[in-house]
Amino acid sequence: MVLAGRLRVYLIALWIVGSGSNIVNAAGPVAETSTATIVENVSYQNITALPWREADHRFNYGPQSLQFGGLWLPESASADNPAPLVIFVHGGCWLSAYDIRHSYPLSTALADSGFAVWSIEYRRSGDPGGGWPGSLEDVIAGISHIRQLQDFSVDLERVVLTGHSAGGHLALLAAQHNDLPSLDAVVGLAAITDISEYALGDNGCQKAAAGFMGGSSLQAPAAYEQAQISVDKLPSTVSLLHGEQDSIVPLTQSDGFEHHRLPRAGHFDWLHPQTPAYRLLINRLEHYLPEHTP
């Protein structure tokens, strides 16, 4: 499966996690994609500078403006050759400042690698109805919406749910619900699993946890208990991928789960198609979503 094509560059202006700095919004022309350079421990700016293309389809899974998802399809997908589906939940510290657009390069790359991608937008802290538990409710509804994709070249019998950072937290929480469509696996990318511990930290994303939860663990103990990931409640096939150079989500967040820690990989490497982390993600997806045999 080849990563190729002419794609549009979009630079997203967002506050960079923990730094408090800002970038100017900009949009660039169509650019050639290159996979020659292998990079590690990439920055958020590296991610937002990547080329991407618009989703092939966009659907609302609820009545609110942020309750939608984008469907990317690989060129190889057809009625006779439906593509396996990757459901993706973007991160961004649960904050409204970080929307789905920074994950467009990943969705583009995964589609170019042969996967259909259903990437979910949801209400976040700062959005009406966002925060706890609205964000999780949106993600669950967004995942359930894949049942409406049966008319597209998508194989709904080969599905992996994945999420990055705070999106990994929401994806794992959603996977604990029994009424979701059938999943072959759940893959967390630098996922937050213990929000009570995470909220005690002092980086920008850790400080955002209390705002998402509506208070500290002392102020809202029942909510924090509901927002914890329990390995006993998860499907049997769960894998957490974590970079050893991650400065935003501590490695301890993957303790107690089946995990793979990648040396020299940082927090955002999972979103960049020119990193060893992305290669590992593709390897895991191909393992969980093998091609059909005659």
Rank of each mutant, 00 (worst) to 15 (best):
S107H: 13
A265E: 06
M1Y: 05
I140G: 00
I47A: 02
I248F: 11
S43C: 11
N178E: 15
W72I: 08
E137Q: 15
P221R: 10
W270A: 13
V42R: 04
P276M: 07
G201H: 02
A185P: 07
S247G: 13
G188E: 06
E121F: 12
P276S: 04
Q253L: 11
Y98E: 09
V9T: 12
Q253G: 08
G70S: 06
R123M: 05
L85C: 11
D155S: 12
P63W: 05
W94I: 06
Y278K: 09
S76K: 10
L200P: 01
G142T: 09
V154A: 06
D155E: 05
Q274N: 15
P82S: 03
T237Y: 07
V160N: 02
A185W: 05
K207V: 11
A109K: 00
G131Q: 08
P133D: 06
L3Q: 04
E225N: 14
S19I: 00
G266L: 08
N46C: 11
A109E: 01
M213Y: 00
A79V: 07
I12M: 10
L161A: 02
I140E: 05
Q148K: 13
L172S: 03
G204H: 04
S19E: 14
A55F: 10
A49D: 14
L183T: 03
S21E: 14
I195R: 02
L161M: 10
Y104H: 14
R261E: 08
I120A: 04
I100N: 02
L66E: 05
P133C: 09
D255L: 13
D194I: 10
A166L: 01
T35D: 10
